Amino acid sequence: SKTSNTIRVFLPNKQRTVVNVRNGMSLHDCLMKALKVRG
């Protein structure tokens, strides 16, 4: 089974995003990807 960790990230202006960290990806990469999608 694939394991994925879901991390809630609290952003300024009362924004919130959820990042799924996959195996083999660093938290930083996942964060940058999530913020790019939002931006």
Rank of each mutant, 00 (worst) to 15 (best):
S1T: 14
S1N: 14
K2N: 14
K2V: 05
K2E: 09
K2Q: 15
K2G: 15
T3P: 13
T3S: 08
T3A: 15
S4T: 15
N5T: 09
T6P: 07
T6A: 08
T6K: 06
I7M: 12
R8C: 08
R8S: 04
V9E: 00
V9G: 01
V9M: 02
F10V: 03
F10H: 14
F10C: 05
F10I: 02
L11Q: 00
P12R: 01
N13I: 08
N13H: 04
N13T: 09
K14R: 09
Q15L: 02
R16P: 01
R16S: 06
T17P: 00
T17I: 00
T17F: 05
V18F: 03
V18E: 03
V19G: 01
V19T: 07
V19A: 10
N20Y: 12
N20I: 12
V21M: 04
V21F: 13
R22S: 08
R22P: 14
N23Y: 12
N23T: 12
N23K: 11
N23S: 10
N23H: 09
G24C: 14
G24R: 11
G24S: 14
G24Y: 05
G24A: 08
M25I: 10
M25K: 13
M25E: 03
M25R: 12
M25T: 13
S26C: 14
S26R: 08
S26N: 11
S26T: 15
L27Q: 00
L27K: 03
D29N: 14
C30G: 08
C30Y: 03
C30W: 00
C30F: 04
C30S: 12
L31V: 07
L31A: 06
M32T: 11
M32V: 11
M32L: 13
K33T: 02
K33G: 02
K33Q: 03
A34P: 07
A34E: 02
L35M: 12
L35P: 00
L35V: 06
K36N: 15
K36S: 06
K36E: 06
V37W: 06
V37G: 03
V37M: 13
R38P: 01
R38C: 00
G39R: 05
G39A: 09
G39V: 04
